[in-house]
Computed example of a mutant assay.
Amino acid sequence: MIEGFPFRFGVNEFTTQPWSFEEDVAHYAALGVEAIEICEAKLDPERAVEQMEAARASGLAVSAVQPRIRTFFGSKMAPQPEAVEQRVAAFAESLKRLAPHAEGASFVMNTGAPSNGNMQRCLDETVHHLRRLAPLATDLGVKIAIEPLNPTSINVETAIWTVDQALDLLDAVGHDSCGLCLDYWNIWQQPDCDGAIRRAGHRIFVVQASDWRTPLSAMDRLVPGSGAIPLGSLLHATWEAGYRGVCTLEIFSSDVPDSLYAQDLENVIRHSRQGLERAWKDHASKVQRAA
């Protein structure tokens, strides 16, 4: 049994939406955060290379990247461009532009919303385009991680909502550079979630954590340890699956009366790290007592 929290701690820039990219880097480094998940939307197109290098110079590892366009089909979060080929081209351009400054990182994506509810077409075309992009990612020294989203996002942002659906899609792609982005907020309610995580095994490329209450908006997540997600169990299942990477805090908190974005964001990060560590420790103690 691993005693201390075994994963490096990272923060996704969506978590600190009110801060600029430069503020993210400065605050994360000062707080002892070990990795940053970069959101391309926060980069200045004229200074993106300089900003990426500044993040690495601060001591932060670049664990993952959220491209500006990260769905092949339409998305409420990023509705333009509309054409699938244009969206795929935009994703490829993000790979080419940012990968040289994020070696080994995973570029996170999902399917987008099926046109006219045609999920089969959405899945088939996603597989087709990932087969085209996977060799490019390999050549650039990065990976692609597909993220199943919560059922609240079906036909808005995604056509897949379980770990097993994502694994089926990855099987169809059949390329080692394509894997899974495991966001606990999105997948914790699926049946036998722990078992699905263990089945994912080496295909887990990215892990994201926050906590759940019945959402008050489309952007409503909580500090880990303050909601309903059995984080300790999921974290241990992730370790048992063989994942040894970064556990990244990803919080959205818009259009809610108690927005975390209006609070002290340094404390949000501190309390989130403590919540994850406590969840790991409490579950470990529970397993030991049961043994």
Rank of each mutant, 00 (worst) to 15 (best):
P6S: 07
P6C: 08
P6V: 09
N12L: 02
E13N: 14
P18V: 06
P18Y: 06
S20G: 10
Y28F: 15
A29R: 15
L31H: 09
E34D: 12
C39G: 14
E40A: 15
A41H: 10
P45D: 13
R47K: 08
A48I: 00
Q51K: 09
Q51F: 11
M52R: 14
M52N: 15
S58H: 11
V65S: 10
Q66M: 15
R70L: 12
S75V: 03
S75C: 11
K76A: 15
P79L: 01
V84A: 08
V84S: 02
E85K: 10
E85P: 05
L95N: 07
A99Y: 06
A99R: 07
P100Q: 11
G104V: 04
A105R: 12
V108C: 13
N110A: 10
A113C: 08
S115Q: 13
N118H: 14
D124I: 00
E125Y: 08
E125Q: 10
V127M: 05
A137I: 05
D139V: 10
K143M: 08
K143V: 02
K143I: 01
T152E: 04
V156I: 15
A159Q: 03
L170Y: 03
L170P: 10
D176K: 14
G179E: 04
C181T: 13
L182D: 05
D183Y: 05
N186T: 03
H202C: 04
I204F: 02
I204L: 04
F205A: 09
Q208S: 08
P215T: 02
L222S: 04
A228R: 06
L231F: 07
L231S: 06
G232D: 07
S233V: 09
T238Y: 06
V256A: 07
P257N: 03
Q263V: 00
L265V: 09
I269F: 06
R273P: 07
Q288T: 11
R289I: 01
R289N: 14
